[in-house]
Amino acid sequence: METSPLGRVLVVDDDPTVAEVVAGYLDRAGYDVDRAADGPAALDRADAQGPDLVVLDLMLPGMDGLEVCRRLRERGPVPVIMLTARGDEDERILGLEVGADDYVTKPFSPRELVLRVESVLRRSRTAAVPKPTGPLRAGALSVDPAARRATKEGAELALTIREFDLLTFFLRHPGRAFAREELMREVWGWDFGDLSTVTVHVRRLRGKIEDDPATPRLIQTVWGVGYRLDPDPRAASGAEEGTAEGRTGSTIAGDSAIRGDRGDRGDRGDRGDRGDRGDRGDRGGRTVPAAPPSPAGQTHLTTPADHAAPPTPAPHSSQAGRRA
């Protein structure tokens, strides 16, 4: 039997109505479609037919979709799209973490599902024929796009298709921040979709490449933007420490200028004491305005006494004598 050039899709769902509708839309779109109603049957069909993609229901009797996805991943890098219930966010995230490439929530549009299938297959085939390039490196990481191989300190990393594509994309654009929408478009090939897909894949990738995923050094979160890969985490760490030391030194110098080199008030003006006082205002204190310099070139600090009314002069001694 001749295989469709678009590929073979295995639909796994215990609901015969859903399976029939999905299979019908995929068939009309030009795919060869196979069906299975439970986990063991799906694994047997996958071994026998070698599908290009699996549409997998999460809630299956006996062996659930998560376990089926794990076993499929153990056998090879076949793309998986999961079908999940509308409110099961935790289950969707767990499905992505075990290696699913995408998910569609029920009830769903069969046309949207066909578009997702096309997108995932297009990305997986593009990844299978990578652009000619040498190994990409960052710190202890090394990625060979042609061989689809990633290592850390010489040990091979077990990455899913999407994790590998995401890491390769970051390594090809070091030091640049990307929004999640950009990553979804460039890595997943989608112009729509749930952005938590990107978040979950970044978190899972960090768990495999970072020394401490809780304090990542390679893939940095850029607040309000998205994510950035720092090619040399040691340099990034040193820069952060240097910035912190600079802030500490600046604070000490500012405190010294404000506190009391009061014996040399002219130097205070040269050192920018007024700027230090402005910084104090930014840190939560009041901004203290400085008085204009005196004719001697020294800075005159205004005090409450300077603004008080002048004292009433005492009567002259000669006048007091005449009155007596």
Rank of each mutant, 00 (worst) to 15 (best):
R203C: 08
R265S: 01
E20D: 13
S119A: 13
A146S: 12
L66G: 14
P293Y: 02
R180Q: 05
L10A: 03
A127F: 04
D276W: 09
G95C: 14
S119T: 13
D261V: 09
G242V: 04
S119W: 00
D27S: 15
G87K: 15
V98Y: 05
A290R: 07
E186N: 14
A309P: 01
I252R: 07
G238M: 10
A150D: 11
A309E: 14
P40I: 05
D276I: 12
R280T: 02
V222D: 01
I161E: 09
L167P: 06
D264P: 06
L166K: 12
G284D: 07
E181W: 14
T248V: 09
R111A: 05
E153W: 13
W223N: 15
M63N: 08
I81L: 03
M63Q: 12
A29G: 04
D88W: 06
S250H: 10
S237V: 09
R75E: 02
E186W: 03
P213K: 01
P231C: 03
R116T: 10
A244H: 01
M1G: 05
P231I: 05
D90A: 10
G189H: 04
V80D: 14
V104N: 03
A291E: 10
S317D: 01
S119I: 13
S317I: 02
S317Q: 00
A257C: 06
R73T: 03
A147T: 04
D14N: 08
D273G: 13
A147D: 05
E245P: 03
E181I: 14
V104G: 00
D276C: 07
A158W: 12
V120C: 08
E74G: 11
T17I: 08
G207E: 06
V187C: 12
L56F: 11
R180T: 10
D44Q: 15
T221M: 08
T299D: 03
S119D: 02
L183I: 10
D44C: 14
L229R: 11
